[in-house]
């Protein structure tokens, strides 16, 4: 009888502990195994500066997926994304890396186009807009002020 009571208590303890672990992993840590089903697509950017694994992918401000990995191919950045299965993307979707807030958290904004054919898992988005480098922006701005003719070029900072 005493042993039975002890076994019940241990059982309850293990159940509570596992529930806590599950709450942490699934609800807060979003354990992929139990998360919503996703499919993978890629996008090629000339620069993905500041983007990290796990950053969000949004359409119209709604989260539709996550960045799954960032690699280099032909000196361009290849970003793998996991998109929720429910979301269909036209093959002329545009992906742009944007910055949220002043601390500079990056995310990918998808702008679906008007094409009839949908992107299939594993396909690549070609139509992209890279991260905007603030430093570059500032220098461009200064450059365009000093040379109002709008001529393109990098040299001649004076």
């Amino acid at each position: 009888m005493k042993e039975e009571r002890m076994e019940i208590l241990v059982g309850v303890f293990v159940a509570i502990g596992l529930a806590a672990l599950a709450y942490l992993s699934i609800n807060l840590g979003r354990l992929p195994v139990f998360g919503p089903k996703t499919y993978a697509i890629k996008a090629v950017f000339t620069s993905s500066s500041g983007l990290k694994d796990g950053d969000t992918i949004e359409i119209a401000g709604v989260e539709v997926g996550k960045v799954a990995g960032i690699g280099l191919k032909d000196y361009n950045s290849v970003v793998s994304m996991n998109i929720d299965s429910g979301i269909k993307l036209p093959d002329d979707t545009m992906a742009s890396i944007r910055t949220r807030g002043i601390i500079g958290e990056k995310f990918i904004k998808l702008s679906p186009g008007g094409s009839e054919t949908a992107l299939r898992p594993g396909e690549t988005i070609i139509n992209t807009e890279s991260s905007i480098d603030i430093e570059e922006l500032v220098s461009k701005y200064i450059f365009s002020l000093s040379k109002p003719s709008g001529e393109k070029g990098v040299e001649g900072k004076k």
């Binding site: 672990l21 942490l24 992993s25 807060l28 840590g29 979003r30 796990g54």
Partner: peptide, 15 residues
């Protein structure tokens, strides 16, 4: 905010 910044890796590391 919690869900945003927390990854499964963190929970796994803690375990």
């Amino acid at each position: 905010g919690m869900k945003e910044s927390l990854e499964f890796r963190d929970v796994w590391g803690g375990a």
